[in-house]
Amino acid sequence: MTWSTESTCETTATAQAVWDRWTTASSWSEDDASCQWATLEEPLKVGSKGKVRTTGPAQNFTFTEVVPLKKMTFTISLPLAVLAFPHTLGAGSSPSTVRVTHGIVITGPLAPVFGFLVGRKLARELPRVVRLVTEHAVLAEA
């Protein structure tokens, strides 16, 4: 079973600036109000691990997809479900913009339950998170 949602926005930030923002775990708390802190414990590649703390105890996450300047996904294991956060970068509607998409995908037998319990709240915050990521990326280049 799968529960999913996503939010997209277009920005004048470069793909590099957005990528830098995504892959600097220490800045995630500035973009996502529900994140207290996050750390990446090893250089970024498929399989590298980190820790993130939201409301409850800190959780481990693992990168499952890393395609520089294009996409990256990390996952968190939940009881009988996996919470994945796919991030994709694509061409914008003009040469000076890029499209930034953040998704939430919950898979596994308890996906609908976690979708209801966790996913809805995360989904509500998602547009704000994408906007803050892009704003910070723009400002980093200004």
Binding site: C9, T12, S96, L139
Partner: peptide, 12 residues
């Protein structure tokens, strides 16, 4: 934000 980004955000 720079003007181009402000415009883009508002239009979106």
């Amino acid at each position: 934000l720079p003007q181009a980004e402000r415009r883009l955000q508002v239009l979106q």
